[in-house]
Design a protein around this nucleic acid. Structure first.
Length: 282
DNA sequence: ATCCAGGAAAACG
DNA sequence: CGTTTTCATGGA
């Protein structure tokens, strides 16, 4: 089986990276193997020490998907600005932001609102099962994530079966708008961060939080700082203690938190966000 | 039963 | 305009 041997300063933790909640289509077996569908491929892989063993994709694909070509240590030292983030970094060292398929990531975070991770995972799995193409891998059937036309063209009763709740019309509307995935990807990629963010938020079901997640996890725009209920709590308790807690997160509060983060952690504050989230308690 | 979860749209003043 | 209310789903 093919493998990659990580170099000494090439920090990587497969478990942290796939288990931190940035992606919803990977499953871990008891003996440490991860199975996932990425694009048209089913991949399985495992990490033992500095050695990554895998099947289903060439090494170049694995390297790119997991951002193993990104020099992580300078990023971590750049965000390591205080004792609290320092603890999070030492707890989760090797967590990398991956390069997710963009359309799937967009739908995933439309499905994520006011929900929890197991529920999001179930929704994405159901969408793939209903609309995706079958792939057989080691005698088991997996499903690709469908493109927009397949989702919008199949009749909305099928999407209703996916239990998206009030998010169903958001996904349908977005699928109808993005007829050319490649062109959409190129457009967002080419835009500077704030412009890309505004552009994403034009889509139904994409607000500030979802836009920031998509920019961070699929477009590698590391200055994004998604603020969910957990991050808000962490920031208020450890960084912006004067910020009073309102019942619903207002736009002003969201922007205050993300501006503070950009200023405090710097260009790679998105990495700081993910380490804070991964090290959260609760 | 009540509250909560990787929030955002719609309604409201 | 900024602020509050509503939204569907399942687990605790």
């Amino acid at each position: 089986m093919p493998d990659i041997t990580l170099s000494h300063n090439q920090k990587f933790s497969l478990d942290q990276t796939l288990g931190c909640g940035q992606v919803f289509r990977w499953d871990r077996t008891d003996d440490g193997w991860w199975y996932g569908v990425v694009g048209e491929r089913v991949i399985r892989l495992r990490q033992v020490g500095m050695r990554l063993t895998f099947e289903g994709a060439p090494a170049s694909f694995i390297t790119h998907y997991f951002s193993l070509d990104v020099d992580l240590l300078p990023i971590l030292s750049s965000i390591d600005r205080d004792p609290f983030i320092h603890t999070a970094i030492s707890q989760c060292t090797g967590l990398r932001l991956i390069r997710q398929p963009k359309w799937e990531c967009l739908v995933s975070y439309i499905c994520s609102t006011n929900s929890n991770i197991p529920m999001i995972r179930r929704r994405i799995a159901t969408i793939a099962r209903q609309f995706g193409k079958e792939i057989t891998f080691e005698d088991k059937i997996y499903y690709t994530f469908p493109d927009p036309l397949t989702m919008s063209g199949s009749g909305d009763h099928i999407l209703t079966d996916c239990k998206l709740g009030y998010r169903t019309p958001y996904v349908l509307d977005t699928a109808g708008k993005i007829t050319d995935v490649r062109q959409w990807e190129d457009t967002i990629t080419a835009l500077p961060f704030e412009d890309a963010r505004r552009e994403l938020m034009k889509l139904k079901g994409v607000g500030p939080k979802a836009a920031d997640c998509i920019l961070l996890f699929a477009f590698q725009k590391y200055e994004a700082f998604p603020v969910d209920i957990w991050i808000r709590r962490i920031m208020q308790q450890n960084y912006i203690k004067t910020l009073s807690i309102t019942s619903t997160l207002t736009g002003w509060e969201y922007d205050t938190i993300r501006r503070y983060a950009k200023n405090h952690f710097g260009e790679y504050c998105g990495y700081a966000q993910e380490y804070l989230y991964a090290a959260r308690e609760g």
